[in-house]
Computed example of a mutant assay.
Amino acid sequence: MDHHITICTSCRHLGTACRPGYELIARLRAAITTAGDAVTDSFEVSGVACMAGCDRPCTVAYHGTRKATYLFGDIDPDTDIEDLLAFARLYADLEDGWCSSLDRPGKLRDTTLARVPAAMLAIETGKVRAS
């Protein structure tokens, strides 16, 4: 897989025991399978215990090799699957992962928590530096 979508499984709706991350994982995997296009072959969906977005459940990250990583919050498994799928298609086609907020579909324009540049390694006179 060239790309990953990681979903927080610890996020809870305020004042409840509801952890919507597991439901979101199942729904997004099903939507990707049903899509039957490049998304199916290119993306892996998995969960992680915490992404430090507790105030904005569900938290979802898109990351790929040599690409910027995106972190989105306030994602609802009932209403945001199509936006997540549309962003997967867009992200797969972006060479470096960078796009304007105007290019992000629907709700993802307003729920971006972070865009993190791809990690780059540089070798400088025998030293390896991460940037």
Results as ranks from 00 to 15, higher is better:
residue 55 D to C: 07
residue 14 L to F: 15
residue 70 Y to K: 01
residue 56 R to M: 13
residue 127 K to I: 15
residue 32 I to N: 08
residue 15 G to R: 07
residue 99 C to A: 12
residue 6 T to D: 01
residue 79 T to P: 02
residue 34 T to R: 14
residue 85 L to K: 03
residue 53 G to Q: 02
residue 118 A to S: 13
residue 98 W to M: 09
residue 109 R to D: 00
residue 52 A to N: 13
residue 128 V to M: 15
residue 100 S to N: 14
residue 125 T to A: 11
residue 107 K to W: 03
residue 77 P to H: 03
residue 20 P to A: 09
residue 125 T to M: 09
residue 6 T to Q: 07
residue 60 V to M: 01
residue 77 P to L: 00
residue 80 D to S: 10
residue 103 D to V: 07
residue 130 A to N: 11
residue 84 L to F: 02
residue 107 K to P: 00
residue 53 G to Y: 03
residue 126 G to K: 05
residue 99 C to N: 08
residue 55 D to H: 12
residue 71 L to S: 08
residue 17 A to Y: 08
residue 68 A to I: 04
residue 50 C to M: 08
residue 29 R to H: 04
residue 19 R to A: 09
residue 123 I to K: 13
residue 127 K to C: 12
residue 104 R to G: 04
residue 42 S to T: 15
residue 63 H to P: 02
residue 40 T to S: 14
residue 90 L to S: 03
residue 55 D to R: 12
residue 109 R to T: 04
residue 118 A to N: 06
residue 117 P to L: 05
residue 113 L to R: 11
residue 3 H to N: 13
residue 68 A to C: 07
residue 28 L to S: 01
residue 42 S to M: 11
residue 114 A to Q: 09
residue 119 A to M: 12
residue 97 G to V: 05
residue 94 L to A: 07
residue 118 A to F: 10
residue 37 D to I: 10
residue 27 R to M: 00
residue 82 E to G: 09
residue 99 C to W: 08
residue 120 M to V: 15
residue 114 A to V: 06
residue 36 G to D: 10
residue 61 A to E: 11
residue 61 A to Q: 13
residue 11 C to S: 04
residue 48 V to Y: 01
residue 16 T to F: 06
residue 77 P to W: 00
residue 40 T to E: 10
residue 116 V to W: 04
residue 90 L to A: 04
residue 42 S to Q: 14
residue 96 D to H: 11
residue 24 L to E: 01
residue 51 M to F: 03
residue 66 R to M: 13
residue 42 S to I: 08
residue 20 P to R: 03
residue 129 R to P: 03
residue 111 T to P: 00
residue 117 P to R: 08
residue 122 A to M: 13
residue 75 I to V: 15
residue 2 D to G: 10
residue 12 R to A: 15
residue 44 E to S: 13
residue 97 G to M: 06
residue 109 R to M: 06
residue 12 R to D: 07
residue 64 G to H: 04
residue 125 T to N: 14
residue 103 D to M: 10
residue 119 A to S: 11
residue 36 G to A: 09
residue 65 T to R: 14
residue 14 L to D: 10
residue 75 I to H: 00
residue 13 H to F: 14
residue 45 V to N: 01
residue 112 T to W: 04
residue 116 V to N: 05
residue 88 A to S: 15
residue 113 L to W: 07
residue 70 Y to N: 01
residue 27 R to N: 09
residue 97 G to L: 06
residue 75 I to E: 00
residue 121 L to R: 12
residue 126 G to E: 06
residue 98 W to K: 09
residue 26 A to V: 08
residue 59 T to R: 00
residue 65 T to K: 14
residue 79 T to N: 09
residue 98 W to S: 06
residue 23 E to F: 01
residue 91 Y to I: 07
residue 4 H to F: 12
residue 113 L to K: 08
residue 93 D to W: 03
residue 119 A to R: 11
residue 79 T to D: 14
residue 29 R to A: 02
residue 67 K to E: 00
residue 10 S to N: 15
residue 113 L to A: 10
residue 127 K to L: 15
residue 96 D to Q: 10
residue 48 V to S: 06
residue 115 R to M: 13
residue 58 C to L: 03
residue 129 R to Y: 12
residue 85 L to R: 03
residue 94 L to I: 07
residue 107 K to G: 01
residue 3 H to I: 09
residue 31 A to F: 07
residue 2 D to H: 13
residue 5 I to Q: 02
residue 66 R to W: 14
residue 93 D to S: 13
residue 44 E to A: 12
residue 47 G to L: 03
residue 7 I to K: 02
residue 58 C to D: 04
residue 46 S to I: 05
residue 63 H to Y: 05
residue 34 T to P: 00
